[in-house]
C-alpha cells in the first residue's frame, strides 16, 4: 500500500470514528480491510481506496470504518472491573438508589455484547436486587457487531473465555453448535448504534458507565471531548469504569480514581459545588457521601 493510500485511510478513520492509527499499523489495515476489499470486488487495497474516493462510496466507507473498529471481547474480560462492579458499585448504588429501585448502566463500545451481558448476569445473581428495574444500554459504532450482540448467540470458544461453567449452565441453552443466552438475560440489555464522536445526550443519565479499551484509540483532544460528554451523562454520585491499561491522567479533573479500586472512577466533585466527599470509609471500602 502506498503511503498516500495509507494516509487517506487514516484520515477517513479518524474523521469517522476517532480511531488514530500509528504509522506502523499497516499490517492491521491490510488484514482487516482485504476481506472488505474482496467483498467490494477489489483485488487490492489500492483498488479499494480508488473506490472509496469515487462518488456513492458512503456504504463502503461505513463498512471500512466498522471493520477497523471491531474489538475482540470476552465475557467478564479482565475480571477486576466486574469484581469492582459486584463488590463496590452495586452495594453502594443499592443504598443510593434505595428509593428509586432503579439502576441505569451504559456499556459504551460494547462490541459483540459480552460486557453488557456479563453485567446483566451479575445483576441477576443479586437476590437482594429482586424487584429492581435495570436499564442496561449497550452501544457500538458497528451495526455488524450489534446484530451479533442482539442475537445473544456465541460459539463454543467464546463461551469458554472468562465465563464460569456455572453461569453457562444457568444462563445459556445449546442451539446447534452455538450457545444462546436466555431470554431473561437478553431482555435486560438494550442495544443501540452509536458513534461516540457524535452527541449522545439523548441516552439520559447513568449510574455507572463502562468505557473500556476504546479511548486508547483516540488522540488527546478526542479523548477529552468524549470523556467530558460522558461525564455529563453520569450521575454526580455514579461510577465510571475504564479498561485495565487506561487512565484519566492528562484529561483534566473530570474523574477521580476511587482509592484502592484500580480502574474505578467517580466524577470529580468541585468544592464550591458541594461539600467534599469522603471517598472511602475505613471499614467496608464503600463510598459514602
Amino acid at each position: 500500500m502506498s503511503p498516500q493510500d495509507y494516509e487517506f485511510l487514516c484520515k477517513l478513520l479518524k474523521e469517522r470514528s476517532g480511531l488514530v492509527l500509528a504509522p506502523d499499523k499497516q499490517y492491521l489495515v491490510e488484514s482487516r480491510l482485504l476481506p472488505v476489499a474482496r467483498k467490494a470486488g477489489c483485488d487490492t487495497l489500492e483498488a479499494l481506496v480508488r473506490k472509496l474516493k469515487a462518488p456513492g462510496s458512503e456504504p463502503l466507507k461505513v463498512e471500512v470504518t466498522e471493520a477497523m473498529t471491531i474489538n475482540e471481547s470476552f465475557f467478564f474480560r479482565d475480571k477486576i472491573p466486574y469484581d469492582r462492579f459486584r463488590d463496590t458499585v452495586i452495594p453502594d448504588m443499592m443504598q443510593k438508589r434505595a428509593v428509586q429501585r432503579k439502576l441505569r448502566i451504559w456499556s459504551a463500545a460494547c462490541s459483540t455484547g459480552q460486557e453488557p451481558y456479563s453485567l446483566a448476569m451479575m445483576l441477576d445473581g443479586f437476590s437482594t436486587l429482586a424487584g429492581w428495574q435495570f436499564d442496561i444500554i449497550a452501544t457500538d459504532i458497528s451495526n455488524d457487531v450489534l446484530d451479533k450482540a442482539r442475537s445473544g448467540s456465541y460459539s463454543q470458544f467464546e463461551v469458554q473465555r472468562g465465563l464460569p461453567i456455572s453461569m453457562l449452565m444457568q444462563h445459556f441453552e445449546q442451539v446447534g453448535d452455538q450457545w444462546r443466552l436466555s431470554a431473561k438475560i437478553r431482555k435486560m440489555v438494550q442495544f443501540r448504534q452509536l458513534n461516540l464522536l457524535t452527541d449522545f445526550s439523548i441516552l439520559g443519565q447513568f449510574d455507572a458507565v463502562f468505557c473500556r479499551n476504546v479511548l486508547i484509540y483516540f488522540d488527546q483532544p478526542t479523548k477529552v471531548d468524549v470523556l467530558t460528554r460522558i461525564r455529563q451523562r453520569l450521575a454526580p454520585d455514579g461510577y465510571f469504569v475504564l479498561g485495565a491499561a487506561e487512565t484519566v491522567v492528562g484529561v483534566g479533573d473530570l474523574f477521580s480514581p476511587v482509592p484502592d479500586k484500580r480502574g474505578l472512577y467517580c466524577p470529580t466533585v468541585k468544592r464550591e459545588a458541594a461539600p467534599k466527599l469522603a471517598l472511602v470509609s475505613a471499614s467496608g471500602g464503600q463510598r459514602v457521601a
Partner: peptide, 10 residues
Amino acid sequence: KEIVEAKFQE
C-alpha cells in the same frame, strides 16, 4: 491456551 488459562484462573 486462552481457554485453559481462563478456566484455571476461574
